[in-house]
Computed example of a mutant assay.
Amino acid sequence: MKALPIIAIAGVVALVVIVSSLFIVDEREEVIVTQFGQVRAVKTEPGLAFKLPFIQEVNRYDARIQSLDTAPLEVTPLDDRRLVVESFARWRISDVERFRLAVGQSGDAALRSGAQRLERIVTAETRGVLGTVASDAILSVDRVALMARIRDAAFAEAQSLGIDVIDVRIKSAELPEQNLAATFGRMQAERQREAEDERARGREAATRIRSQAERTAVEIVSSAVRDAEIIRGEADAERNRVFAEAFGQDPEFFAFYRSLTAYERSLQGENSTLVISPDSQFFEYLQNDTVQPRN
């Protein structure tokens, strides 16, 4: 009977030892087993694993892709047009043992320390690459090639930390706040100058078109006046010919017709009045009952 407590105690101790010896490696992480601070094993495959109880420790590291948002960085391109650049990176632990040696920690603290080390690398490479090109290249489609250069340079530098840099992207590239007002003013002045140039060219074109139209109008009117004078002259000549022909056929009747025409024209209107001597030749055909031939 006295042996039962001993057996029970031994069983509990054995259970504690077994439990302390077992641990689970999650598929989303990698594990380093250390003994007195020295690396004894690296577990990268998910499943059940063993360690020496009490004297060995399990250090877990997240194996998933991590995101890093860098702080705003002021860069100076070749044209000295300063820009404030914000970027982000995607990274993961590629060599967990090297990563532990670099950061000296595990868990979330190791990720924070690794992100800080990586941010310094990405910042330095971003400043170095963007400083070799003009600002127009940073603000154009050439940015894709620049981001690839930054990623490759950061990848090579981060290998010493046991980190793979998967991607680096520039989120924004803007002018510093103190330069915005001056830049906007310069842009506004340039647009105003362009607008004034357009107005000047428009006024010049309008003057040219107006002058051309006026010249064309003068030519048309002159041509019309000339043609009208020609037609009028031809009509007068025809009229004189007809009158001459009529006069030649019957001079007395022609004189009578001309007198009637003169009466009609002189007595137009409602209150037409003529003050003329009764024996005037003007009333020759009104004074005689019959028309007498002229001598």
Rank of each mutant, 00 (worst) to 15 (best):
Q268P: 01
N295C: 09
S211P: 05
E245C: 05
A109L: 11
F155S: 13
D152N: 12
I32A: 02
L286V: 13
D80C: 07
R90L: 08
S272N: 07
I7S: 13
A195M: 09
N271W: 08
A89H: 02
G131H: 01
D69C: 03
R265E: 07
T183V: 13
T216S: 12
L73R: 09
T76E: 06
Q56K: 00
E198I: 05
Y285H: 12
R40Q: 14
I18N: 15
A158I: 00
V144T: 14
E86Y: 00
Q38H: 09
R82D: 05
V141P: 12
A224R: 11
A124M: 04
G47T: 01
L68V: 01
R112T: 08
S266A: 15
Q192L: 08
E177V: 04
T76Y: 05
R239Y: 13
A14M: 02
D62M: 03
A134R: 14
V33R: 03
S266H: 10
E234D: 11
V25F: 04
A145D: 15
F23N: 07
D279W: 08
E238T: 11
V25K: 09
R40S: 10
F99Q: 01
G37Q: 04
Y285A: 14
A262Y: 11
E284M: 09
G104T: 04
Q66W: 09
D289W: 05
L83E: 05
D62C: 06
R117M: 13
P293W: 14
W91P: 08
G131E: 02
F36H: 15
L111Y: 10
V75R: 03
G47M: 01
P251Q: 11
I230C: 07
V165R: 00
S259V: 04
Q268Y: 06
T126V: 07
E219F: 08
T34W: 05
E174H: 08
L48S: 06
E270H: 07
L146N: 01
A228P: 05
R82S: 06
P251E: 08
L274I: 14
G248Y: 14
F254G: 05
E29W: 03
E198R: 12
R151E: 05
R90S: 01
R210P: 02
E119G: 09
V221K: 13
R127L: 13
R98L: 11
E234R: 10
I209W: 12
S21M: 11
